[in-house]
Amino acid sequence: MTQLDVLYRYAIPPTEAVALAVARAREVYGVRRISFDEAEKSVRVEYDATRLNEATIHQLLRRAGLDIIERLPMYTEPAPVAEPAPAAAAK
């Protein structure tokens, strides 16, 4: 089993009907967890990559009625470290 996560941003908060449809998507074999972050307007899906792929997860959420805008990165790359300026030549 290979566990992966994917994170999406949605436009409109899910209605009760959409929330129920997303709950039914949890019953799909290979979907491990679906969690919402209302403040960030995002949904995170944990799934088994040996059973499903990211395109299938996206399709499950769209068919449930969730208005997905974009896929978000799971992490941000650290800012590059600035190189120290060379020391001035001694006089």
Rank of each mutant, 00 (worst) to 15 (best):
T50Q: 14
A25I: 02
Q59N: 12
E16S: 14
T76R: 15
A55F: 14
T50C: 10
E46W: 03
T15A: 10
L52V: 03
A17I: 08
A23M: 03
Y75P: 05
V43A: 00
L72F: 10
R26H: 10
L7N: 12
P13W: 06
A64V: 06
T50M: 10
Y47A: 11
I68D: 06
R63S: 09
R26S: 05
I34W: 04
A17C: 02
K41A: 05
I68G: 02
Y10P: 01
E54F: 06
P78D: 13
E40R: 12
P14S: 01
M74H: 10
I57P: 07
V28Y: 04
L7C: 03
E77V: 11
K41C: 06
H58V: 09
P13E: 10
R9G: 01
A19G: 07
T15S: 15
A25G: 01
E77M: 13
I12A: 04
E46L: 14
P73M: 05
Q59W: 14
N53S: 03
E38C: 01
K41R: 12
D37C: 00
L60Q: 06
I69D: 15
A11R: 15
E40H: 05
E77I: 12
A25P: 00
V45R: 06
N53A: 08
E46C: 11
A19Q: 11
I57S: 11
R26W: 02
T15F: 13
L52E: 08
V6W: 08
P73G: 04
P73W: 15
A55M: 11
Y47E: 11
R63I: 05
R71K: 10
P78C: 06
L72T: 03
R33K: 11
R51C: 15
R32Q: 04
Y75G: 07
P13Q: 03
Y29M: 00
A25Q: 09
Q59G: 02
S42V: 08
I57V: 15
